[in-house]
């Protein structure tokens, strides 16, 4: 899939399983590429400084802050955003658990929380609720849904064992 050029530098990127051939400016962040050029606004901008975690996406399966990553440095990589987690109508287990446990209110930090949780579970270092709290502390939820976020992730973590 080809997009109109936004800058001089060629870039190939798989976003949610689709191969994209892009031309971007050297200063465009992965976050702005997703939100402004690819219209994937599920990934959120909460600070643009790597301080809030709202922009968390998975690059080759690892969670990163998309606002601190330049798009040109992701050449050849595979990016998964919140839009790529569900299969059609079937939600990812974490998405379903977030709804069931009311693990969000305004919903703005939610895509970042869920992508971060996917990455955290893949890392495999969390054993219980205290680990989840610690390892999810890069994602600020100003609505304060933390106890429910921990419950939702804990449920999925337990089911995966």
């Amino acid at each position: 899939m080809t997009h109109p050029p936004q800058g001089p530098i060629p870039l190939t990127l798989a976003v949610n399983g689709r191969e994209l051939a892009l031309h971007v400016a050297p200063w465009t962040t992965l976050l702005d590429l997703l939100r402004l050029h690819l219209d994937l606004t599920g990934t959120k901008k909460g600070c643009d400084h790597g301080q809030c975690g709202a922009c968390t996406v998975l690059v080759d399966g690892t969670r990163i802050n998309a606002c601190l990553a330049l798009a040109v440095m992701q050449d050849g990589k595979s990016v998964t955003t919140i839009e790529g987690l569900s299969r059609g109508d079937e939600l990812h287990p974490l998405q379903a658990a977030f709804i069931e446990h009311d693990a969000f209110q305004c919903g703005y930090c939610t895509p970042g929380q869920i992508c971060s949780a996917v990455g955290m579970l893949a890392e495999g270092h969390a054993e219980g609720p205290d680990d989840i709290r610690e390892q999810m502390s890069g994602n600020i939820c100003r609505c304060g849904a933390y106890p429910n976020i921990v419950r939702a992730i804990g449920e999925v973590m337990g089911a995966g064992r």
Partner: peptide
């Protein structure tokens, strides 16, 4: 559960 929940957890909101 929130009726707008699906839109929020899928990034569609």
């Amino acid at each position: 559960s929130r009726v707008d929940g699906r839109l929020k957890v899928t990034g569609a909101a």
